[in-house]
């Protein structure tokens, strides 16, 4: 067996068009040796989950700055579970108030990264937590 690559889906759910962060993190993941699949803008949770399953990614990284995180992030986790893909590591990033983080974690988001976090932090988090 060869060393398996960590595969990450960088997802932009909802209508949010701010993709600077998503694209910067996608490049940083690539430079960390991950295989990155970027969904593009305006994806529904259903589309994201279908892509995550077909691509058999280890990680779903959700970027959201529009304030819709409390609705959309848990929905993605639940759909993944429904489709038998609950083993994927789901992380989130964006303008997310601290108050909302406990709720998101309880909903199954493994970690939430807020503005100003160096890209090395989610990279290390993924390396440490991905189930390989």
């Amino acid at each position: 067996m060869v060393e398996s690559k960590i595969r990450v889906l960088v997802a932009k759910p909802g209508l949010d068009g701010h993709d600077r962060g998503a694209k910067v993190i996608a490049r940083a993941f690539r430079d960390a040796g991950f295989e990155v699949i970027y969904t593009g803008l305006r994806q529904t949770p259903e589309q994201i989950v279908a892509a995550a399953i077909q691509e058999d990614v280890d990680v779903v990284a959700i970027s959201l700055l529009s304030g819709a995180h409390n609705t959309l992030m848990p929905k993605i986790v639940n759909l993944l579970k429904e489709k038998g893909a609950g083993d994927k590591l789901v992380i989130g990033g964006g303008v997310i108030p601290d108050d909302d983080i406990p709720g998101l974690k309880a909903a199954g988001i493994a970690e939430v990264f807020t503005p100003g976090t160096p890209t090395s932090v989610p990279i290390e988090f993924i390396k440490a937590n991905v189930k390989k």
Binding site: G14, L15, D16, R42, T44, S66, G67, A68, N70, T71, L72
Partner: peptide
């Protein structure tokens, strides 16, 4: 498509 985004 507006789910979660209204008024945000």
């Amino acid at each position: 498509m507006a789910e979660g985004e209204v008024g945000k």
